[in-house]
Design a protein around this nucleic acid. Structure first.
Length: 537
RNA sequence: GGCAACGUAGCCAAGGGGUCUAAGGCGGAGGUCUGCAAAAUCUCUAUUCGACGGUUCAAAUCCGUCCGUUGCCUCCA
């Protein structure tokens, strides 16, 4: 059951093609970086897609890039950018952001500019059917020709006119008519058409691409609720006027992300970029935050809340890691009633208008129910219960919502760039530590350190005023960054083990020095009964 | 002005006629653990669901009015 904006009711999804769900989600206009308000539909509908797949449907997921638009043209003229460069740049940046968020690529990501011939045919069809007219080398959709206009946004044409805040274009026959094809002004990108050079109007693209890729009638059309009017209303009108069929069976709309009580929007400037949020709080933190609120409700963004969810994400991840470490192999051997019950609950919750907050609550209930991993393991059926809990969180909930995928939080592209300098800082720590040993004439530890580094092909050269180090062989290339990241982790592990040894010897002085040194790298140590765990922020 | 949502503990947020003396998270209080620091863990933390009326055996949940917040009516996810 999903709430259909058209009827305002929860409705069952009955796929047009049995076993298949075809969905279209309105994508970004590519003229600048997207913000976390844009991330909400991306995250929600990606998860919904995964849920349908989990339920055994084959999903065709289309999300467009709007690459013909007034704002792109404005930016082009203002900053002297080339049209194609702007759109290509921001399509690339959008993909990067989605990757950092762990949002999957759609099956199709059509661009408006690639569908101009189809658009022209579509518009021609509307003219032939009397739903559109040419006026002054432009084409308009005739709203009065489509009696059902206003059904989606629940408004009457008269009401629209009463509240109209914009001057009526004199070329229009009716004030509510909207543009299907705009004529080209000098300096604008344009395409030839039967009505002269011009470009598609702003609602037509989605109609055309959805019809071409998904068929005249498809299952789900989704986007932010700020698109209900006029964008989706107009899409629906023009598509249904042409085909005479229902355009989308279900219209789904997510609530707005607000910032200090008002909508986060590019035009208001109160935005947080996706990459900033991911860097600070991790993809899981951001997603958990969003899933903890029902997708249709508005939600207010706050740094404090993000920080809470980031810590919650780490908590879950730590639980999973502990299980991975204690069990080694986490495959599920047998599912008991316990798991079946939880799964049934999860399915019921997600089937009821995609109630992700319940799924999130289930994760934490499970953590609470199982308690500390080491304690659960000591119980007779402990191992089996841990396996099932792991499976529920990681493979059921995690796979559906796109959470807990990476070994530890999602590393943003920017973070990767930092890897080199972090590595150098870590080496400084090691070298200082070794210098200390040498000054204390602790040759044993000095040698251990040297050998450990040699394993990673790092050579130390002792000098009178401290050691220097080189990596061999050759320069550090982009391909070796991954290497460095893993070496980094190995060296930290080494230092943590070393510290554990000091702790067991009750040498707290050295222990604290190491904690302090690692703290410089934003590494936090957590001493437990079975060794020390470390995390980086 | 029109249309559409929403108002639940200190904060965030599920629930949407009886199983609700209301999930989950954060915060707070107390206990366990602990070289330090942190983490983990246990217990407690709304007789009440914006206000007032109504329907019903029964309402946070349905209806009405009012108050408040937001979105859309112009590009916006």
């Amino acid at each position: 059951m999903l709430t259909n904006t058209l009827t305002g009711q929860k409705e069952s999804l009955i796929p047009v093609h049995p076993g298949e769900i075809r969905m279209y989600v309105c994508g970004p206009t590519v003229y600048n970086l997207v913000h976390i308000g844009n991330a909400r539909p991306a995250i929600i509908f990606d998860a919904m897609r995964r849920f349908f797949e989990y339920r055994g449907y084959r999903v065709f997921f289309v999300q467009n890039f709007t690459d013909i638009d007034d704002k792109i043209i404005q930016r082009m003229n203002r900053e002297g950018w080339d049209f194609d460069t702007i759109t290509a740049t921001y399509i690339r940046e959008y993909r990067k952001d989605m990757q950092a968020l762990g949002v999957r690529e759609p099956n199709f990501a059509p661009r408006t500019s690639h569908y101009v011939p189809q658009t022209i045919r579509f518009v021609q069809g509307l003219i032939e059917k009397g739903h559109a007219y040419v006026s002054n080398a432009q084409v308009f959709f005739s709203v009065p020709s489509f009696p059902n206009y206003g059904a989606l946004s629940h408004r009457k044409v008269e009401d629209l006119l009463a509240g109209a805040r914009i001057d009526v274009d004199p070329d229009k026959r009716h004030p509510a008519d909207f543009s299907l094809w705009k004529n080209a002004k000098p300096g604008e990108p344009s395409w030839d058409s039967p009505w002269g050079p011009g470009r598609p109007g702003w609602h037509i693209e989605c109609s055309v691409m959805a019809c071409v890729l998904l068929g005249d009638t498809f299952d789900i059309h989704a986007g932010g609720n700020d698109l209900i009017f006029p964008h989706h209303e107009n899409e629906k009108a023009q598509s249904e006027a042409l085909t005479g069929k229902t355009f989308a069976s279900l219209w789904l709309h997510n609530g707005m992300l607000q910032m200090d009580g008002s909508k986060m929007a590019k035009s208001l400037g109160n935005i947080i970029k996706i990459r900033e949020a991911v860097r600070k709080y991790g993809a899981d933190g951001l997603k958990l935050y969003m899933f903890a609120t029902h997708y249709r409700s508005p939600m207010d963004y706050s740094e404090e809340r993000m920080d809470e969810w980031k810590r919650s994400a780490v908590k879950v991840r730590t639980f999973l890691t502990e299980i991975e470490e204690t069990l080694g192999d986490t495959t599920l051997k047998a599912a008991s009633d316990w798991l079946e019950e939880k799964r049934a609950y999860l399915m019921k919750a997600l089937s009821d208008d995609f109630n992700t907050p319940k799924a999130v609550a289930l994760v934490f209930e499970t953590l609470k129910e199982l308690g500390p991993v080491s304690q659960t393991l000591a119980q007779p059926d402990g191992e089996s219960r841990l396996r099932q809990a792991y499976y529920l969180i990681k493979n059921d909930i995690g796979d559906i919502l796109g959470l807990f995928e990476d070994a530890f939080d999602t590393v943003s592209p920017e973070k990767r760039e930092d890897a080199l300098s972090d590595f150098n800082t870590l080496m400084d720590v090691l070298v200082r530590l070794r210098d200390r040993y040498r000054s204390e004439k602790n040759e044993e530890m000095s040698d251990i350190l040297r050998r450990e580094l040699e394993k990673l092909r790092i050579k130390l050269m002792d000098g009178t005023e401290g050691a220097r180090w080189t990596r061999s062989p050759g320069e550090i290339t982009a391909e070796r960054r991954e290497d460095i990241l893993s070496n980094f982790n190995l060296l930290v592990d080494f230092l943590v083990r070393l510290r554990d040894r000091y702790r067991s010897e009750k040498n707290y002085e050295m222990s604290d020095i190491l904690r302090q040194e690692l703290g410089k790298l934003r590494i936090k140590l957590m001493d437990g009964n079975d060794g020390t765990r470390w995390t980086r922020s």
